[in-house]
Design a protein around this nucleic acid. Structure first.
Ligand code: SF4
Ligand code: SF4
Lengths: 145, 145
DNA sequence: CAGTTTTAAGAGTATTTTGTCTGCAAAGTA
DNA sequence: TACTTTGCAGACAAAATACTCTTAAAACTG
């Protein structure tokens, strides 16, 4: 049951890492994140480049460079992240993989699957990175293997 | 958001097809299914072989051969199918892909994700192939693109 | 300016998933 | 028995995903 691609998993973990350490609004080094989170540096770089090109992050080169949030993490919802990294149709997928699905001639799973998708979407649309970051700090939840 | 692999999608569609046409307990030809459901014949063959080796189906060769249910579809739950085709740890996967997850040191998503997983598991554990097949016949739901 | 640090960009590789092909074995038909 | 129909098995190939490497460009340091 793979819901998120590795890109999304890594991207989310990196963003949450940024939230927890952004007392200052400094740029966070990609190298540092890749080491702390045990993610391949080059792969993480590419993922964060996607987020930068989508204007979720801004980047800065040279010593003490890195990436930073373009908008405050209070305003970034999980759905925004997965929409960028997984595509706009992330929540439109079907359990049985039938194309052109819909209410008119739904497959047997439809009623149940609709509910699950709605719950997932609802959660992603109402949870901000900042809220998750706060949860991390409060309960000392983990982000690293 | 890919929950099921193609193998599971195809396997489930084939099994549901078998349910809907098993007024008689005849063997259903794999070739026929692959054509009706528009699934690659060889690929579907391999998937059904997995189900046969797991004793969910029995097969018979030669003219008018094919596959049939080993136990009545009333007794086959969706969870049985995905456990065979996706592995036993299907419902143990984690949203952020962190290994060794658990209640003791959960990641930020844990509380929410636990609920979604439970709902999905619950549904898969209580829905039989026969029940879904009945739903297909009653509401003339579709199984084919 | 020369040299270092860091992200950007894109080509290249590895692994997994998905799908194809070929030959064989079992069962039926004549 | 010879021949056809079907599933079985495993090698093979294509596509998608995941990851790596190299070169460049921007920013800083002295
Ligand atoms: S009817 Fe529902 S479950 Fe079936 S393919 Fe469409 S969206 Fe998916
Ligand atoms: S704590 Fe929960 S969400 Fe996090 S890795 Fe473990 S099971 Fe997954």
């Amino acid at each position: 049951m793979k819901v998120l691609s590795k890109s999304s998993e890594y991207g989310l973990r990196a963003l949450l890492y940024m939230v927890t350490r952004s007392g200052e609004q400094e740029y966070v080094s990609i190298r540092e994140m890749s080491e702390e989170l045990e993610i391949s540096f080059h792969f993480l770089t590419k993922i964060l480049q996607n987020l930068t090109q989508a204007n979720m992050l801004v980047s800065y080169r040279g010593p003490s460079g890195g990436v930073a949030f373009n908008t405050p993490p209070e305003d970034i919802l999980l759905v925004d992240v997965v929409r960028i990294l997984e595509g706009d149709d992330f929540f439109d997928k079907c359990l049985l993989g039938l194309p052109g699905c819909g209410e008119r001639s739904p497959c047997p799973m439809h009623e149940f699957w609709k509910g699950i998708k709605a719950a997932l979407k609802q959660e992603f649309e109402t949870t901000s990175l900042a809220a998750m970051g706060k949860s991390i700090q409060l309960k000392s939840l983990r982000l690293v293997p």
